[in-house]
Simulated scan of single mutants.
Amino acid sequence: MSSPRLPPAAVQRHLSAPRLAPYVAACSGDLDRAVDLYRWNAAVAAAFWEVVGHGEIILRNAIHDALTERHGRSRAPGEWFDDPRREFEPRALDDIAAARRRASRTSPNPPPGKIVAELSFGFWRYLLARRYAPTLWPAIRHSFPHLPRGGRNDLERAVIRLHLLRNRIAHHEPLLRENLPARHADLAYLLDAISPAVRAWALDDDRLAMLLSDRP
């Protein structure tokens, strides 16, 4: 048996008028449509959260593998994120230190993979920045065998946009003005650069297309 429909005015009261305001404005004041649009926004956000999550983990592992291989060739002790070549900027070093602290809460000597998993999407985004083009990028580039020649700038911009989208979703913000088909294309570009096969696995194109076309 389906549950009774909550009147739109009650939904607004429980969610708060300010939270629903962007949806009401997008529906020219129609509260019924605004509530439907809010539910649609939540469904689209959940779908993107899933696939962007896949993209974040795949990107993280691709960069980690490339820098681990580079570090191994140098025969330096420790791990690449110990920064033996003193290449990382203060922000990155702060992120690594914070990841170590979080990883150490459950293990006094956390394995490298645990520390890497604690590093945020923003950390990996900044490793693709131009400042690291002469140092880290030549090694990272090998993890993107299908990236067009000279595509670091395009890759960085796509990852920046995906990071911003992820943050909007994480804060339950409206996606009404977000170019969602373009963000889908950004994710496809990132994953295709690593492996078209992994892109096919990670992206549920039909589900996203149906949701995007079903906006109230």
Rank of each mutant, 00 (worst) to 15 (best):
S104I: 01
G151K: 11
E69V: 12
A45W: 04
G78L: 10
S120Q: 08
A42I: 03
D36V: 00
V35D: 03
G29W: 01
P174M: 05
D186V: 09
L127I: 06
P134E: 05
A17K: 07
L191A: 08
Y132C: 09
A21L: 12
D186Q: 07
L31D: 05
L211F: 11
L212R: 04
P4C: 04
I169N: 13
D192L: 06
S2K: 13
D95R: 12
P77R: 13
H172S: 13
D32V: 00
V44H: 08
D154G: 14
E87H: 07
R125W: 09
L147C: 06
A202M: 10
A197Q: 12
N153T: 15
V198G: 00
E118L: 01
H71F: 08
A66E: 13
F48N: 06
I58P: 00
R131L: 08
T68E: 15
D205F: 02
G151F: 08
G72T: 03
A200P: 00
H172P: 02
P216S: 09
G150A: 10
L203F: 05
R168Y: 02
H171F: 10
L20D: 08
V159I: 14
A25T: 12
F123G: 05
P18T: 05
R177I: 01
R131H: 10
P18G: 09
R13P: 00
R39M: 03
P174L: 05
P84G: 08
R85V: 01
A158F: 06
L31F: 09
V44R: 04
A202P: 02
L119W: 07
Q12D: 06
A185K: 09
R85Q: 14
R85P: 00
L187I: 03
L211G: 09
V159D: 07
A129V: 02
R207A: 14
K114Q: 15
E56V: 02
S28R: 14
A92Q: 15
P22T: 06
G72K: 11
R13C: 01
S3D: 10
I63L: 12
H163T: 15
R5D: 12
P145R: 14
R199N: 07
P8K: 10
A193E: 10
I58F: 03
R100S: 00
A45L: 04
A193H: 08
P90F: 03
I194K: 09
L15E: 11
L37M: 05
A117G: 13
L203P: 01
A99C: 06
F121G: 00
R161I: 02
L119R: 10
A17L: 11
S143C: 04
A66R: 15
T106D: 14
G151Q: 11
D30L: 01
W80P: 03
F81Q: 12
P148G: 11
A10S: 10
S28G: 06
L67D: 09
T135V: 14
L67W: 11
R131Q: 14
V51R: 11
C27D: 01
S74A: 15
P112W: 11
A188I: 12
H64L: 03
R152K: 12
P145I: 13
L136S: 08
G122D: 11
L155Y: 03
